[in-house]
Simulated scan of single mutants.
Amino acid sequence: MDLRLSLNVQDLKAMAPRLEALGLGAEAYLDPEVLEDDELFWNAPRLRFPLSVHLPFWNLDLLSPDPEVAGLTLRRLLFGLERAVELGADRAVLHSGLPAGRTPEEALERAPVFAEALRPVVRRARALGVALFLENTHEPDPASLKVVLEALPELGFCFDASHAQVFSRTPLPEPWLALAPDHLHLNDHDGAYDRHWNLGRGLGHHEDWLGRFLEATLVLEVRGDPTPSLRWLEGFLDQTLTEAL
């Protein structure tokens, strides 16, 4: 199982021994605060575990009506891919930048335009050998993501069930899973807020569907000690194996 823990890139070096002890890979968030810190990236240790990155996303939107924001977004994403290579990452996750509260019609209208704006990023990721994944965030349903994924076949899908249940109008996983995700963000929530709790603490009910996607890359996006999530996964796997016998 390709299981990774989400953390900030600043914490990657310090956390490396514990990650190796737990048998986990990592997904490092490329915090814009340190993205320009050459020392941090050039002197990063070569790690023995699998590594992906989460590209910057706060206040970024490739389709922002402010051209300075749109230009900054493109530069941030492209530079983030360069940093991913410096760290030795094999995968990178990004958000669409769709603002919260958009209607399904607005999301669909935006989708083909976003796909064209994203094309240089997809092209650069392919040239660098980094697999790129688009994560569901504030999309009201999967329809707009499907348009983007069909326009850009090199782009994969990252499914976050908590985002779907808290932010979207389509809380059930099946419509999203029809997009064939190969990268998953796993955490739990309280039904109202994206808490990033450990698995099993809240209302996510990942056990209802996760068994079909154990070959995907699984990223624990939890705050604090991930041990409860690891115990939950161990119990889930034991139950899955028992039911298969």
Rank of each mutant, 00 (worst) to 15 (best):
residue 6 S to G: 14
residue 15 M to D: 01
residue 15 M to N: 03
residue 31 D to N: 15
residue 33 E to C: 03
residue 34 V to S: 12
residue 34 V to H: 12
residue 35 L to D: 00
residue 39 E to W: 12
residue 40 L to M: 10
residue 51 L to S: 06
residue 60 L to I: 06
residue 61 D to R: 04
residue 62 L to D: 00
residue 72 L to G: 00
residue 73 T to D: 08
residue 74 L to P: 03
residue 78 L to P: 03
residue 83 R to M: 10
residue 83 R to S: 06
residue 84 A to I: 07
residue 84 A to W: 00
residue 89 A to P: 08
residue 96 S to D: 11
residue 96 S to M: 12
residue 101 G to E: 09
residue 107 A to E: 02
residue 107 A to H: 04
residue 112 P to S: 03
residue 113 V to K: 15
residue 114 F to K: 07
residue 116 E to V: 04
residue 116 E to G: 06
residue 117 A to W: 01
residue 117 A to F: 01
residue 118 L to S: 09
residue 119 R to C: 02
residue 119 R to A: 14
residue 123 R to K: 13
residue 124 R to M: 10
residue 128 L to D: 10
residue 136 N to M: 06
residue 144 S to R: 06
residue 147 V to D: 00
residue 147 V to T: 13
residue 148 V to N: 05
residue 156 G to P: 03
residue 158 C to Y: 02
residue 158 C to W: 03
residue 160 D to S: 12
residue 165 Q to C: 09
residue 165 Q to D: 12
residue 168 S to L: 11
residue 172 L to H: 14
residue 177 L to R: 13
residue 187 N to Q: 14
residue 193 Y to L: 15
residue 199 L to C: 08
residue 204 G to S: 15
residue 207 E to S: 13
residue 207 E to P: 06
residue 209 W to H: 13
residue 209 W to G: 05
residue 209 W to A: 00
residue 210 L to Y: 05
residue 210 L to D: 10
residue 212 R to M: 02
residue 214 L to S: 02
residue 216 A to E: 01
residue 219 V to A: 04
residue 221 E to K: 03
residue 223 R to A: 11
residue 226 P to V: 05
residue 231 R to V: 14
residue 232 W to T: 00
residue 236 F to W: 14
residue 237 L to V: 14
residue 239 Q to D: 15
residue 240 T to E: 15
residue 241 L to P: 00
residue 243 E to V: 13
residue 245 L to Y: 08
residue 245 L to N: 07
